[in-house]
Design a protein around this nucleic acid. Structure first.
Lengths: 343, 343
DNA sequence: GCGCGGAATGTAAACGGTTACATCGCCGTG
DNA sequence: CACGGCGATGTAACCGTTTACATTCCGCGC
């Protein structure tokens, strides 16, 4: 086993308190004493035991991250952003992915007790009230991309509505009128908000319902591929498709290309997320950009704030702006459009 | 704060030992007592404190995962696989990403002391000996995709060599002779092994050096794009390109398409990794498949074994087979080829 | 010469569990 | 009836830190 603080203290001829102070930069220590202790610690290979420290200080230096079932490049980027931001503040992150049902979330939350100082929950599938019931009231929490409606937690959400709306308007401005939408996973909040953005934009532009233009999907490339085939079979055929995310759009491109239907000449395509490969697709994908790395950093920052101020602070609900990035797949020349920001 | 075991014990009229036993399913407990305790615990919202438990049992129920700087869909899938496998065995995972330099790794390792029961290190950039120096000798460790040469740890690696070799041979079988290679990040072990596989296959096929056919890269789409432009300027122009990974291949496709060079008619392209979108590209990407999810599961399994058996067990070095998946980008009809497995 | 204040360090009580060992009934057996 | 044994539970030490509260030492002002 590795050395304990007591062994170091004995070996250095001081008390444990002094050793502890040296390792925490607390209280005045004679320089000579400090050096001696550090030397002994090095020789013995001593490193403070995190569990003991947590028990004593009631701080773990760890932030829990709950991820949904869904995955892909988007989440990978988010995790990375979170980890980077957390480490910059001296925290580790404990990841727990693939949470879909409620009882599972509850189990994980229990298991996390005493393991984390705060929680970042990313669960677009669950609604806020279900969470409130499960979450220990005392733990600071930031909801990332969850349905929030009047929730008692801090939250950060994407402007899904604005992004979707901007995309539809852009396609309409290019002359498209039969603009189809491939929906995201059922029950997913992002998917829902994007759908609503699409519907309302369509409604206000053309004063017509969009039911027959909405195709089911689940955010996967496969579902995009299936939707693509479905769209090609429609009559009259849509001239543009707005996909709920980039993975779906990739599936669409694949289906169209395979059928010999040219993008954007025969049909325009737009996605959502702007994952790194989007600009390298053929044709480069028009999509809605989300500042993913910022998302993570912002979430950590909010959480740290919440951890400092306890329950006193007012809950903040922030909506992160999204930006339409116009590339080749929609048939317009390159450029950037800024969707209106929903408050 | 939340309730402690003592409060539960007092409220239920039993000793802490009994409560502990109920929560750990240890020792005989009268059914009636158990129910009473559970009821009280529920009422008080009691959940055992993980830090205290770790301190006492010297187990944390957590596995540390060290990731490199590099990211992308590949790593995201690995994390997911790891988390899934870990949770199935009742463990959490503590992720720490973006470790490039040595001192940073050392710092993280110290910080992890007492926080994890074992470690999965994924650091294709660092060599095994550097790790050995830093790693606490007592902690069970599995090296994932690291340079291993005679290392004292368990390890799991991909058959990069075999995959690269198979790809080159496949391209050669299609009649290609000037097969270029876009290299991965310098200093990266996977990149090196793939390069060697490429070189040796080329050498044994054509008995010629490949220096002028090797182009620098770093695993990113951008580097593929740059390499693509470089390749188009070469004279004589290569008729096929083997990219060090799929992201690079995507960059290549983009560069070629932009220049009006058709794939695979004018030039063939192959990648490595078989990330989920590979089959949805235009054209679908011929690439080397790695069982990513299995990788994670296997790593966890090995680590659990190492954790059980302490130092007694013999170190295992495993090489995971890779499979060439032939799709449209290389100009062959679909099908599967199995590269020889290097022992 | 003495008291005082601050710097440097020590003492010991938490922190919240686990668990070896002790205790206490109670039942069956010789 | 004494006793061994077992099932159910209690007692208290221990895990490795942190930290409030001493304690010691020393120089300085009066």
């Amino acid at each position: 086993m590795s050395a304990t603080i007591r062994e170091v203290a004995r070996e250095a001829g001081v008390s444990v308190a002094t050793v502890s102070r040296v390792f925490n930069d607390k209280g005045p220590i004679r320089e000579e004493t400090r050096q001696r202790i550090l030397a002994v610690a090095l020789r013995l290979g001593y490193a403070p035991n995190a569990a003991a420290r947590s028990l004593s200080t009631r701080k773990t230096g760890t932030i829990g991250v709950l991820l949904p079932d869904l995955y892909g490049e988007f989440f990978s980027e988010v995790i990375r952003g979170l980890d980077l931001a957390a480490r910059r503040s001296g925290f580790h992150i404990l990841v727990s992915s693939s949470h879909s049902d409620r009882s599972e979330v509850e189990a994980v939350l229990r298991a996390l007790r005493g393991r984390v100082d705060g929680l970042i929950v990313m669960s677009p599938e669950a609604d806020a009230r279900a969470l409130e019931a499960n979450l220990p009231g005392t733990l600071p929490i930031v909801l990332l991309n969850c349905p929030v409606e009047g929730s008692a937690f801090d939250s950060i959400n994407l402007d899904n509505y604005g992004g979707a709306s901007a995309t539809v308007r852009h396609l309409a401005a290019l002359g498209h009128r039969r603009i189809a939408h491939v929906k995201g996973a059922p029950g997913n909040n992002d998917a829902l908000e994007r759908l609503v953005g699409y519907r309302e934009a369509m409604q206000s532009l053309f004063e017509e319902g969009t039911e027959e233009l909405e195709i089911g999907g689940d955010f996967s490339e496969d579902s995009g591929d299936r939707a693509g085939r479905e769209i090609l079979a429609m009559n009259p055929r849509p001239t543009a498709v707005f996909a709920a995310n980039d993975a779906t759009a990739i599936g669409l491109l694949h289906a169209f290309q395979k059928a010999g239907v040219r993008v954007p000449d025969d049909i325009a395509v737009a996605g959502f997320d702007d994952i790194p490969i989007a600009r390298f697709l053929t044709p480069p994908l028009t999509t809605v950009q989300v500042a993913i790395a910022d998302l993570g950093a912002l979430a950590i920052q909010r959480l740290l704030l919440a951890m400092e101020h306890g329950d006193s602070r007012e809950r903040q609900h922030e909506i992160l702006p999204t930006t339409l990035v116009v590339r080749g797949s929609c048939g317009a020349t390159a450029g950037r459009f800024h969707p209106r920001r929903r408050v």
